[in-house]
Amino acid sequence: MIEVGLTHFLIVSSALFSFGIYGIITRKNAVMVLMGIELILNAANINFVAFSRYLNLGLSGQVAALFVIILAAAEAAIALAIVLNIYKTFDHVNVDEIEKLKE
């Protein structure tokens, strides 16, 4: 049986990160983009915890992960509020077409 090592965690997190990036780039729906961002954040969290666990850094990684989770929650709340407002204004949440600020 194979010992679960740092590499495995990193592979999982990079997969998550890639999915996140993919989501951000390809989706036009603002909610989907937000989900992509959440995926990236969580990929980072896995890295924090993994490095903290394997590289003898004490509890710093875990603390950082906790901060990120809290931040992500706050961010998700604000972002969803914005998306809601956007939907109210434009009747859709397609990021490509929200160009009002550009003008």
Binding site: I21, I24, I25, T26, V95, D96, E99, K102
Partner: peptide, 12 residues
């Protein structure tokens, strides 16, 4: 283009 996604592609 003014699109975040495009920029992100460039970044990646």
């Amino acid at each position: 283009t003014g699109k975040v996604q495009t920029y992100l592609v460039f970044v990646v």
